[in-house]
Design a protein around this nucleic acid. Structure first.
Lengths: 183, 183
DNA sequence: TAGAACGTACAGAAAAAACTGAACGAATAG
DNA sequence: CTATTCGTTCAGTTTTTTCTGTACGTTCTA
C-alpha cells in the first residue's frame, strides 16, 4: 500500500517520523564507514513498500541517478540490499535485506575478513623476515631491537587470529548461543 | 634499546619491515573510520621502544605538531594510546595500549554503544508516535501503512537491542567464553 | 615574577571524497 | 533493423575532511 492514497497531512505526518528514523539509520551506517547519503538511501529503501528502481530512488532522494547507481552498488556489495527480478520490467529493482542480523554478520565477513587475513599474512611475513636477521653473531643492540619487534608482531598476529575466529562465530551463527536474538 | 645504535643498513632493513606492518595497521584502522595518517601514527607508537612526545612523533611522521596533537587525541579518545607520566619531563608522553583485545572492546563500547542506544530511543519514540495515529476510525490505507512501518521499526529495535547485548558481552569479557583468546 | 617551553584553538590551504551531467554501450521493444 | 530505454563510465565541480602555521593561554623554571 503506497503513501499517495493518503491525504497530504497524513503523508507529511508519516514522512516526518520516517525521516527521523532514516536520519538515525544513516548516522549509524556512517559509523561503519558508509557515506551518510548512502545511509539515507538505505533508509528510503527500508520504508519502501515495494522494490524500487534507480529513478524512483533519485526522486525520493532528490539526487542524480548516477549517485543512486553508486550508492546502491555500495549497499549491494555489503549485501545490505538485494536485487529483485520482476517480469515485465527491464529496470533493475532493489529492496533492503530486512534480516539485520544477517546484514551485520555479512558486514564482518565482507569488510573485515579480508583485512584481517591480509594483516595476518603481512605480520607472518614480517616476523619471518626479521627472524632472518636474527643470526648467532649479531650485534646485541640489534638483537634486542629485533626480538622486541618480533614479540610485538607475534602478539598482534594472535589478536588478529582471535578476530578471525570471532568472525567465524558470526558467520556460522555460534554468536547467537552467547547472545540470543530474543531477549 | 633504540635504533640509532645500529648501522645505517641495519636501520633501513628494520625500518622497511616496520613500514610494511605500519601500512597494514593503518589500512586496518582506516576500516574503523580512523584517518590513515592517524593509523600510521599509531603504527609509529606501536614500534616505539619508549613513550613518545609530540615533537618526536612529528619527526617520525614528518608532519606538524598540530597534526600529532589532534591525531593523538583521537587515539586517546578511543583508548588506543595512553598518556604516560614521567618525572623530570614536562612534555606529555604517549604509548600505545598493547592489549588489543581491550582496544577492540573499548572501540565498541565507545563508538557503538552511544549510537546503538540512541537509535533504540529514536525507534521507540517513533513507534509510539505512529501508534498515536493508529486510531479506531482510521482510513484503512493509512492503517496499513502505519502497521507496516511499525512492524519494521519493531524489528529494527529488536536488532539494536541484540547489538546492545553483544556489546555487553564484549565489555564484560563473556565473548572470550565463546571465542577464547588462545587458540 | 619574568621568561621559556609546552599543548591546543583557529583560520586558511591542500587533499580527498562525494556528487553531477553528458556520453556511451548493452539490451529490449516495436 | 532501428529507436528507445537502461545502467554505468568518466571528467569536471562542489563539498568535506585533513593538514599546516601562527597565535594564544598555561605551566613550569630559574
Amino acid at each position: 500500500m503506497s503513501l499517495d492514497q493518503l491525504s497530504p497531512e497524513q503523508q507529511t505526518a508519516v514522512l516526518n517520523v520516517r525521516k527521523r528514523v532514516i536520519e538515525a539509520i544513516g548516522r549509524n551506517m556512517n559509523l561503519y564507514g558508509i557515506p551518510l547519503s548512502t545511509g539515507h538511501l538505505y533508509g528510503l529503501l527500508f520504508f519502501a513498500d515495494k522494490p524500487m528502481t534507480l529513478d524512483e530512488m533519485g526522486m525520493g532522494m532528490k539526487m542524480s541517478k548516477t549517485s543512486m547507481s553508486t550508492g546502491v552498488r555500495t549497499l549491494l556489495d555489503m549485501k545490505m540490499v538485494n536485487k529483485v527480478w520482476e517480469k515485465g520490467s527491464r529496470k533493475d529493482l532493489y529492496e533492503v535485506e530486512y534480516d539485520w542480523y544477517q546484514t551485520f554478520t555479512d558486514f564482518f565477513a565482507i569488510k573485515w575478513r579480508k583485512a584481517v587475513e591480509g594483516n595476518i599474512l603481512v605480520l607472518k611475513r614480517s616476523i619471518k623476515e626479521m627472524n632472518k636477521y636474527l643470526t648467532e653473531d649479531i650485534d646485541p643492540a640489534l638483537r634486542s631491537v629485533l626480538e622486541e619487534d618480533i614479540h610485538k608482531m607475534n602478539e598482534a598476529a594472535k589478536y588478529y587470529s582471535w578476530l578471525d575466529r570471532l568472525i567465524d562465530a558470526m558467520e556460522n551463527g555460534d554468536i547467537y548461543d552467547l547472545v540470543p536474538k530474543e531477549e
